[in-house]
Amino acid sequence: MSDVGVLHPVRIRVAQVLALGPRTGTQLRQALPDVPYSSLYRHLRWLLDAGVIRVAGERKVRGAVEHTYELDEHAVQGAVPDPSALSPDDHERAVTAFVTGLMAQAHAYLEGAEDPVTEGLTYLSAHLWVDDDELALLRRRLRELIDPLAHAVPGPGRRQITLGVVAIPQPGDRS
């Protein structure tokens, strides 16, 4: 796959449109009229190969097959069954899918947000110095906080949020 991991503006825009719901290629062309036809389909192919989007349906239109595309929720959620089996390129595609999906969800939310802070919009990046034991403890505590809520069901007073957490080791001293 060429162009691995690059958050290309057209790909981000396609993901933003698909965050609003599934769209056919024709609907994507209408939503992105400034993007040339061949360029759009090249970026759709990249997003499909990277696992950011998937084909949600197909139908025959005048002898051709029209695809309906949607964000791949598993990729957007970072649901990788066995991360240890991934190559560095696979990890880059997975992170790209995850980040692109978060950006698309944020865009879809902000399109209609009245008061993002009061409604709960939060984003944070923190640079931490940790050893292996502290990192393992951080992962465990995040799981302890997130797992019970991940299995909660809709109900009065409850609303769904997307929580994205990424821990990226920084290049340099790995002693």
Rank of each mutant, 00 (worst) to 15 (best):
V55Y: 00
A94W: 07
V4D: 11
A19G: 12
L124P: 00
T118V: 11
P169G: 09
V76S: 09
G172R: 06
Q16F: 03
V52H: 01
T122N: 10
V95F: 10
V35F: 09
V61Q: 13
L86G: 01
P171T: 05
L18G: 02
V4E: 14
A136Y: 06
V130T: 12
A106I: 02
A64L: 10
A104M: 09
L40E: 09
D115C: 08
V55D: 10
L128V: 11
R45E: 14
L32Q: 12
H8M: 08
R140Q: 13
D89A: 11
E119T: 06
G101Y: 07
A50T: 08
S175P: 07
T122A: 12
Q160A: 02
A152S: 12
Y41G: 00
S39I: 08
L7Q: 10
A167D: 05
D72P: 00
H67S: 13
Q170K: 07
G155H: 07
S175E: 05
T24L: 08
T118D: 13
V65K: 08
R42E: 15
P22D: 13
V76N: 07
I12R: 13
H151Y: 05
D3P: 01
R29T: 01
L28W: 05
D89W: 02
R158E: 00
R62P: 02
R140P: 02
R13S: 15
G164C: 08
P116G: 11
G51A: 01
G157V: 00
A152R: 09
L86P: 01
L145S: 09
V99S: 02
R42C: 03
L48Q: 13
D34V: 04
D90F: 04
L28D: 11
A106K: 05
H74C: 04
D34M: 04
E58A: 11
A15H: 01
V10C: 06
P116Y: 09
G155D: 02
